[in-house]
């Protein structure tokens, strides 16, 4: 896979390059500023761009905007956004900009080659990747079993995996259950929560995240 890296730390850029080399990828672009990434991507056409959310000049969400712009201009270039802490609205904003070929992970996941590799290949395959920690935040605040949700423990696990961006097949593999069981869980979940079931996996992630993110109504 051809990778572009945008990070303002030289050591991170170098370290990540070595790591990705080790995983069998080729790093074709390395930039330290978000304003240069678009031109470099247009010139080198990488498969996936790995971008840190906080970059100069304001160190707030420059990386996020850059990722959104890349996804809008180059449908064939995926984007993996790395963040020091997870924010639900960042993820939903990204999914609204471009459903699919998008990933949103905590930055310290780059220390785990397996997670990094899995995320990159799923993004390259057009899937969505959402950090499990973010999903847990949302599930805990919104969908814990109790008066607020009618979901069973198993359905909650499935809901979390949908939110992380996994397809039915991916969920079946992760939970070691059959594809048809997963499908029936998914049907139940969507019916119980009143979320319209959408055609594609990526739009499904967005719908679930939006539902999880919306403030619960108190009775």
């Amino acid at each position: 896979m051809r990778i572009a890296i945008a990070d303002d730390s030289l050591i991170i850029r170098e370290g990540l390059t070595k790591l990705l080399d080790g995983l069998g990828h080729e790093v074709v672009v390395r930039v330290d500023r978000p304003d240069r990434i678009l031109a470099e991507v247009a010139a080198h056409r990488p498969d996936v761009v790995v971008v840190d959310i906080k970059m100069p000049p304001t160190f707030t969400d420059e990386g996020l905007r850059a990722a959104g712009a890349i996804r809008q201009r180059h449908a064939d270039v995926g984007a993996l956004v790395l963040s020091q802490y997870v924010v639900a609205s960042y993820a939903t904003w990204l999914l609204e900009m471009a459903p699919g070929s998008i990933g949103y992970l905590l930055k310290n996941r780059i220390l785990d080659p397996a997670i990094l590799q899995d995320a990159l290949s799923r993004i390259h395959a057009g899937e969505t990747v959402v950090d499990p920690e973010l999903v847990q935040v949302l599930i805990r605040s919104r969908a814990e079993p109790g008066p607020l949700t009618p979901l069973s423990r198993r359905e909650l696990d499935v809901l979390a995996l949908i939110a992380e961006g996994l397809s039915d097949r991916g969920i079946a593999e992760r939970l070691v259950i059959s594809l048809s069981t997963v499908s029936s869980h998914v049907q139940h979940i969507f019916t119980k929560l009143g979320i319209p079931d959408t055609a594609t996996d990526n739009r499904r992630v967005h719908a679930v995240l939006r539902w999880l993110e919306s403030p619960a109504k108190l009775e």
Partner: peptide, 29 residues
């Protein structure tokens, strides 16, 4: 929390709920 500065009260409290060993529900925004 940087989330508080960047995103506001509810996202910051959601992040707090994840770090907490207790079950913390956050309602309203």
């Amino acid at each position: 929390p940087a989330v508080l500065t960047d995103q506001g009260l509810r996202p910051a409290l959601l992040a707090l709920s994840v770090r907490s060993p207790l079950m913390v529900h956050v309602d309203g925004d």
